[in-house]
């Protein structure tokens, strides 16, 4: 009886020491889970999830305070990836929250009054221009977040859905009927 108690305590102490040591030795700075989630998010910084950017949303998911199905730009695939990472069930998008085709903003340069409001709104600095000067979108940097649409006082910004071109065309999933093609 006494030996058993002694043995159990000894094991407990040893294992506790190992755990304690590992906790110090292998301590990870920051929140690696949030980093991994952030790496999955599409970085549009659009705020459609209700958080001010992708990182805050990633932090919220990591803390368990946000659902995984709130990022329309990430698409269903994004939800699948998050579900895989976190080991939770896939959750479809709620009503009204649906991914849109990828688009970039375009400023109608004839209407633009050069107010800089869109420049201030752009989360990725993809708009150039200065006060009283015409603004323009750097299409390659635009994430299509639509945050510039609302502030524009003259509604000169529109979203252009990116067209399929020879340079960005993708092969389709092969569809072949099992039955003879007659």
């Amino acid at each position: 009886m006494f030996e058993a108690l002694l043995a159990m305590s000894a094991i407990a102490i040893v294992l506790g020491a190992v755990l304690g040591y590992s906790a110090i030795k292998f301590r990870v700075e920051g929140n690696p889970l949030a980093d991994k989630i952030d790496a999955i998010l599409p970085q549009t910084q659009c705020g459609q999830c209700g958080f001010p950017g992708c990182r805050p949303y990633a932090d919220a998911i990591a803390n368990g305070t946000a659902e995984i199905n709130m990022c329309p730009p990430g698409g269903e695939e994004g939800i699948h990836k998050l579900a895989d990472l976190l080991g939770v069930e896939f959750k479809p998008f709620g009503a009204g929250v649906e991914p849109k085709p990828k688009a970039v903003a375009f400023i109608d340069e004839n209407t633009c009054i050069g107010c800089t409001l869109c420049i201030q709104a752009c989360p990725v600095d993809a708009i150039t221009g200065a006060a009283k000067q015409m603004h323009t979108i750097i299409a390659a940097e635009c994430t299509g977040c639509e945050l510039c649409l609302a502030p524009c006082p003259v509604d000169c910004i529109i979203m252009l859905v990116s067209e399929e071109k020879v340079s960005n065309w993708k092969w389709k999933y092969p569809m072949y009927a099992l039955s003879p093609a007659r």
Binding site: P42, C54, P123, E141, T143, N168, W171
Partner: peptide, 20 residues
């Protein structure tokens, strides 16, 4: 072409993150 498109998307996302 899916893998290439995904890589391009990932790069764009990384760039957007850095810019943000």
């Amino acid at each position: 072409s899916e893998v290439r498109a995904r890589d391009a998307e990932k790069q764009a996302a990384d760039k957007a993150r850095i810019r943000h």
